[in-house]
């Protein structure tokens, strides 16, 4: 129970990501059907997205959009990104951070408190990772379609049996 209170409940999203990832890995390794393998792959990749999104969360924070500063929009968003990244490092690791100075200087400049904003960087990274995941899935589906055309099956054991017999198109 102590373990549950101390390690599981406060970090339940991380536990879920581990469980999801293992489900995906299990499907990729043990499933016989190629499409089921790909579903496993997608679950695996989605688990990582969940992990990254969890990193960016802060209690009591809001979406990282600056409302009142119109003059230097780009540079400021960038600052917010960098700061909240640094800030989070402080949170996860209580011992060390020498980035405080930088942070306060910027805060004084623009009146932004990074505590009020969720860290947007992991979210942005995950947009890229989602694109990568979709394209991997696309290539994988195209390849499995081509396998189906050649072997007339998507079951791994049947394909391997056909390869052993020197089945269709398997010239050596």
């Amino acid at each position: 129970m102590e373990f549950l209170n101390a390690s599981v409940i406060p970090y339940f999203n991380y536990w879920i990501y581990v469980v999801l990832m293992m489900i995906g890995l299990h499907a990729m390794i043990t499933k016989n059907n190629l499409i089921k393998k790909l579903i496993g792959m997608s679950i695996f990749q989605t688990a990582i997205i969940l992990f990254y999104v969890s990193i960016g969360v802060k209690t009591g924070s809001t979406i990282p959009i600056l409302e009142h500063h119109h003059d230097e929009g780009h540079a400021e968003t960038a600052h917010a990104v960098a700061e909240s990244g640094d800030h989070h490092a402080e949170e996860t690791d209580h011992e060390k951070s020498d980035h405080g100075n930088n942070e306060h200087a910027i805060e004084a400049d623009h009146g932004i408190d990074p505590d009020h904003f969720a860290n947007p960087l992991p979210h942005v990274l995950m947009l890229t990772a989602i694109v990568v995941g979709v394209s991997t899935l696309g290539v994988a589906l195209a390849i499995s379609q081509s396998i189906y055309k050649d072997f007339g099956s998507l079951e791994e054991n049947e394909i391997l049996a056909k390869i052993k017999q020197g089945g269709p198109g398997v010239d050596v």
Binding site: T136, S144, S146, I147, I159, G169
Partner: peptide, 18 residues
């Protein structure tokens, strides 16, 4: 052109993605 290429590519894809 050999159909074994596609099967090899599929396994490569699964491993590479992991």
């Amino acid at each position: 052109s050999k159909s074994r290429g596609t099967v090899a590519a599929f396994n490569y894809l699964i491993m590479g993605t992991v």
